[in-house]
Amino acid sequence: MLFVCLALVLPAGADTYPSRPITVIVPFAAGGPSDAMMRTLAEHMKQTLGQAVLVENVTGAGGSIGVGRAVRSKPDGYTVSFGHLGTHVANGAVYRLGYDLVADLEPVVLLPSNPMIIVSRNNIPAKSLAEFLAWLKAQPGAASAGTAGNGSGSHIAGLYFEQVTGIKLQYVPYRGTGPAMNDLIGGQIDLIVDQTSNAINQVRAGAIRAYAVTDDKRLDGAPEIPTTDEAGLPGFHMTLWSGMWLPKGTDHEIVARLNAAAVAALDDPGVQKQLKNLGLQLPPADQLAPEALGTLQKSEIAKWWPMIKAAGVSPE
């Protein structure tokens, strides 16, 4: 009888997790940088977990719809929230979410990050960042800047750019930076302060022009692009980190198993090569525990919320 009673209080399903496919909700359009990263990781994670890891793209409201779906799902480890600085930090200062980004989510693992990159359509005459800043200042109306929606990483980067340069931008929101990039290539918008992973292949192909990366060191995969410090905008640094979360209340053993699968993927040389080709930077080994993601998320909320609120950012 004692054994039966103990069995009743053990976490249901934790010992057999996972016994069916896992769904990772990516709150952005398919084909964008977040989607590409998660699909690369999912392909390896299924080998460790012994179950399919499916990516579901749920767009809208700067990613808050997709995150909300994950928050409200059953805390059994089968619905995972993927996101980044925009969805799991900035959105709390922009939207009335109906959920708390810290209290209602369980951190799983910090994922690769990338600096932003300042890029423009090709037919803008500027060839350097200094020339581009001069061109922006000379515009009779604010230049058009694509974003993945209010509060997205590209929008935060644009606000930060405005704050550092004093140049005003006219934001054009999209349902992801993938669609925004298509319009930049087509010359329908002027610029994006974009994730490197979304822009680098188009830069390499000569479809758009790159001016600088928002880091203090050059990219291994594109060493010809200067840093903002080198290009004349010192201190304009911003890294868009990503992560995975589960609904609050998920058993810690399930969190640990999902964390271990993600860490194994990040440790695989083939996966590392794919991620680095996207311009992504792998997280340090000592930052891969769930607690490290939780600490980072809280510190970033303290850093970015005041700027976003001061800018009066509101939902589209």
Rank of each mutant, 00 (worst) to 15 (best):
W135L: 08
M307F: 11
V164M: 14
I189D: 04
A292K: 13
A264C: 10
I25D: 06
W245Y: 14
E56M: 10
G176R: 08
D194R: 07
G31E: 06
I117V: 15
G232T: 13
D268R: 02
V213F: 07
I22D: 00
Q297P: 03
L169T: 09
G158Y: 12
I208E: 02
M181N: 13
R209G: 05
T196A: 13
T23V: 14
S314Q: 15
D15K: 10
P33M: 00
P290H: 12
G66R: 06
G235D: 09
P283V: 10
L49G: 08
G92I: 06
V80I: 15
K168R: 14
E106D: 12
L159A: 07
Q51G: 00
G92L: 04
I167Y: 03
T16L: 05
A231T: 12
S64A: 11
G141I: 10
P247R: 08
S299I: 02
A14C: 08
P11K: 07
R209N: 15
A61D: 15
G221P: 00
V213T: 15
D15N: 03
G270E: 05
T48P: 01
D268N: 12
F82M: 01
A61W: 01
T214S: 15
G149S: 05
V24L: 01
R218K: 15
P284T: 06
H237A: 03
V53K: 01
P125H: 02
I118F: 14
G206V: 04
W245S: 06
I301H: 02
A12G: 12
N182P: 01
V55S: 12
G151P: 09
L240Q: 08
G279P: 09
G151S: 02
T48C: 00
Q281L: 14
R72H: 13
F161A: 05
T59F: 02
G83W: 10
G153T: 11
Q163I: 07
H44R: 15
M38K: 00
M1D: 11
G83D: 01
A52G: 00
P283D: 00
P140M: 02
W245N: 07
A93H: 05
L110P: 05
S19W: 04
A7C: 11
S128W: 04
V55L: 13
F236A: 06
T239H: 15
D229Q: 12
F236K: 04
V119T: 15
A157Y: 01
A90E: 13
R121I: 05
P125W: 02
H155S: 06
N182S: 15
P115K: 07
L41F: 00
A285P: 03
A7R: 12
A222H: 08
P179M: 11
P290F: 13
G50F: 03
A285H: 08
A205G: 05
Q202A: 15
S242E: 09
A70H: 04
V203H: 09
K303I: 11
A143C: 08
M37Q: 13
P140C: 05
T16N: 08
N198F: 03
N259Q: 14
N122T: 12
A12I: 10
P283R: 01
A12F: 02
A42E: 00
R218D: 12
A52F: 00
V67P: 02
G166S: 06
T87N: 11
Y174Q: 07
V213N: 10
L296C: 03
V53Q: 00
L240W: 10
L110G: 03
M307C: 04
G31D: 05
P125N: 04
L105M: 14
R175H: 10
D190Y: 09
A180R: 11
G68S: 07
